[in-house]
Design a protein around this nucleic acid. Structure first.
Lengths: 337, 337
DNA sequence: CTGTTAGCGCTTTCAT
DNA sequence: ATGAAAGCGCTAACAG
C-alpha cells in the first residue's frame, strides 16, 4: 500500500490558482476572496485533504505535540492521570504522545530520546523508581524544551512540578490510626530516593510525634515497589516480637497486597492489624475489607501538569519562577482501619 | 524559551565537509571514510545533535510512527494491551501514539483525525461501544494507511483483525457452570452491535443447547457497558420469578460489580448464584469471592495486532488477504463458581 | 569516497 | 486579493 497525499499543489492546479492562495484559504487568512476561499475549502473537503504535519513542523519548528512519560501503567493511577493530561492538551489544541518506561531507567532514557526525535513541544514526566541521573532530562532544558514533573519529581531540577499533599495526607492517615487506638504503627515505604516517599514518611513521623508515640526504627521499612516483594516485608512485620497493630502503606497496590497476605494468616483486619494505603485506586474499594486510603486528585494532577507545561510554552519567559503546585489529599475511611 | 536545533549543516560547516557526507555518516551509510565518520559522530554527540523527524518524514513520506486508539483505559485491559503493542512497535523501530476515545464515537472520529494529521504509518483500533459508522476509518484505507482492528472489531471492513476465542471461552465458562449443577444460567451481555458480544452470546447459547437446557429469552440482557447500570440488570435478574442460579457476565468489570451487588443482598456466591466474568483483569483475583473468568492473552493481543500492522506496512500488497487472528482463551476457575 | 543539485509540502516575505 | 520565490532540514539522485 502506498500512501497518496492530496497536497495544496493538487488543489491549486485543479483550481488554476497559486499555492499561496490555497494555503491562505486553508489557514483562514482574512485576505482571501470569499469565493476563492469557498472553492478551495470545498475541493479540499472533496479530496479529503489533510495538512502535512511534517512540512508545517519543518516551517514552524513546533509540533503542537506534548510528550508524557510515566513509569508504568498496569495500575489505574497513571492511566487516569493521562486521561486528565490528554483532556487539557486537547483543549489547548495539542496532541499527546504517551510512553511508559516500565520502571526501568534505561527505558526512560530511551523514551526521552523518542520524545526528542518526535520534536515534542514539551514534556511531562514522572520518573521511575530507579532514576537517579537526570542528564537525559537536562538535555531538554538545554534544547529549550520545557519540562514539568508530576507525582514522582526530581528535586535537583528547577522546573515546575505537581505533587499532592503527601505530608498532610500521611499525617491525617496516621492520626486516624491513632484515634482508632493503634499505637504500634508500621510504615511500609517506597525507595528513599523518591521525594514522594520522604514526604509521606515525614507525615507519618510527625503524626507519631504529635501524639507522643516514640518513633521506632524497626517499624519503618523501605522497599523498591516491586509488588511481589511485599510478602517479605509483611512477614517481617508480623514476626516482630511486638507485632504492629497497624500498617501505613506507601500506596494502594502495596496495601492491597498487604491485606491479602494478612488475611491468609488469619489475623483480623482492622482488629489485629489495620491497613491504610495512599491514592484511592479503583481496586481499593473492591478488596475486603475495603481499604482506608488517602485520596489524591489523579486526573486533576494530569490537567494541572499539562497546564504548567502550556504556560511555559506560551510564555516567552527568561526568568520564570518554576512553581510547585501542591494538590489536596483527603482521607477516605473504609473498613480496613 | 526558544528551541535551538543542531542541524547537519552546523556539523558540516564546523568540520568543513559537505552536508551529504555528514548525512551519510549519521545514517551509517557504508561508503564513508572511517575517519570522517568518526569525526562526524563525535561532533554530533558533543553538540547533542538530534535528527529532525519533520524533514525526514517529509522526504520519506513515512513517520515510523503507529497510532493506537482504544475506547477507554480506566480499567486494566487496554493499558496492558498497549504495553504489548508498544513493545512490538519499539522492537521494529516504530513509535506509538496512543489515544483513548472515552467510549465516545465523536472522540473516536476526532482521534482518528489526529492520527491522520500525525501521519501515522498505520493504525490500531478497538472501537467504542457507540461506533456504527466507519467512514473515519475507511478514510485511512482510501489514503492507503493500513489498519488493524483488535478486540472490538468492525465486521464490515476487510482488514486484519485480532480477536480471541470468544465463542470457545464463553462455551467453556457456561459448560463449567453446568458441571457445577447450575441450570438457570443468565447472561449479562454488552451492546449487540459489538461482534465480541455476539460471539460470546453464541458460545453461551451453544453450551446450553449441548446440555439440553432450554434457552430462556428472559435470562439474556444486553446493556451498554456503562458500569453504573449493572445494578439495574442484576436487580432484574434477582427479582425474576425463577431466580437464575448463575450469571455469565460479558467482562470482568461487569462481573465484579455484579458480585458486589449480589453480596449486598445476602445471597451466597457461588451457592445461590455463581458469577463468571471474561478477561481475567487484575481486580478479578482481588474481589471476594475471587472471580472465575475466561482469561485472554491481553499483551499478546497487542503484540499480534502490531505485527499484523507492520506486515501490511512492509509488504507491497495489492491483493493481500486480510487475516483474522484468533488467540486462545482459558477458563480460570476461582471461588465465584 | 565525497560534493552538487534538486526537491519533499508548506508558509512566508515581498511584490504586484 | 493574489502570485512568485525562498527556504525550513534532510536525503537521494547524479556526478565526479
Amino acid at each position: 500500500m502506498k500512501k497518496h497525499q492530496t497536497t495544496i499543489i493538487d488543489i491549486a492546479k485543479e483550481l488554476g490558482i497559486s499555492k499561496s492562495t490555497v494555503s491562505r484559504a486553508l489557514t483562514g487568512h482574512p485576505s482571501v476572496h470569499e469565493q476563492t476561499r469557498d472553492k478551495v475549502l470545498q475541493l479540499a473537503n472533496e479530496l479529503e485533504y489533510q495538512r502535512n504535519m511534517f512540512s508545517i513542523g519543518l516551517m514552524k519548528r513546533a509540533s503542537r505535540t506534548l510528550g508524557i512519560i510515566v513509569p508504568e501503567f498496569s495500575r489505574s493511577f497513571f492511566p487516569q492521570l493521562i486521561i486528565g493530561a490528554q483532556e487539557r492538551a486537547k483543549e489547548a489544541g495539542y496532541n499527546l504522545i504517551i510512553s511508559q518506561s516500565d520502571e526501568s531507567y534505561e527505558t526512560e532514557v530511551s523514551n526521552a530520546r523518542v520524545m526528542l526525535a518526535h520534536q515534542v513541544d514539551g514534556l511531562l514526566i514522572s520518573i521511575t523508581r530507579e532514576t537517579n541521573n537526570f542528564d537525559h532530562l537536562k538535555l531538554f532544558q538545554r534544547k529549550g524544551i520545557p519540562i514539568v514533573f508530576f507525582n514522582r519529581v526530581c528535586d535537583e531540577m528547577i522546573v515546575p512540578k505537581v505533587i499532592v499533599e503527601d505530608y498532610e495526607g500521611a499525617f491525617a492517615a496516621v492520626e486516624h490510626l491513632i484515634a482508632r487506638g493503634k499505637r504500634k504503627i508500621a510504615h511500609l515505604s517506597g525507595p528513599e530516593s523518591l521525594s514522594i516517599c520522604k514526604r509521606r514518611k515525614a507525615g507519618y513521623t510527625a503524626a507519631l510525634a504529635k501524639h507522643n508515640i516514640a518513633f521506632d526504627e524497626d517499624l519503618v521499612v523501605h522497599y523498591d515497589l516491586a509488588i511481589n516483594k511485599v510478602k517479605f516485608y509483611i512477614n517481617y512485620f508480623l514476626n516482630l516480637k511486638e507485632r504492629p497493630d497497624a500498617i501505613f502503606c506507601i500506596n494502594d497496590p502495596t496495601a492491597i497486597e498487604a491485606i491479602q497476605l494478612i488475611k491468609k494468616t488469619g489475623l483480623a483486619i482492622p482488629g489485629d492489624i489495620a491497613v491504610i494505603g495512599f491514592s484511592n485506586d479503583f481496586a481499593s474499594s473492591i478488596i475486603e475489607p475495603a481499604l482506608t486510603t488517602v485520596e489524591q486528585p489523579i486526573k486533576e494532577m494530569g490537567r494541572t501538569a499539562t497546564q504548567l507545561l502550556l504556560d511555559q510554552i506560551d510564555r516567552d519567559v527568561a526568568n520564570w519562577k518554576a512553581p510547585t503546585v501542591v494538590l489536596k489529599t483527603q482521607l477516605i475511611v473504609r473498613d480496613s482501619s
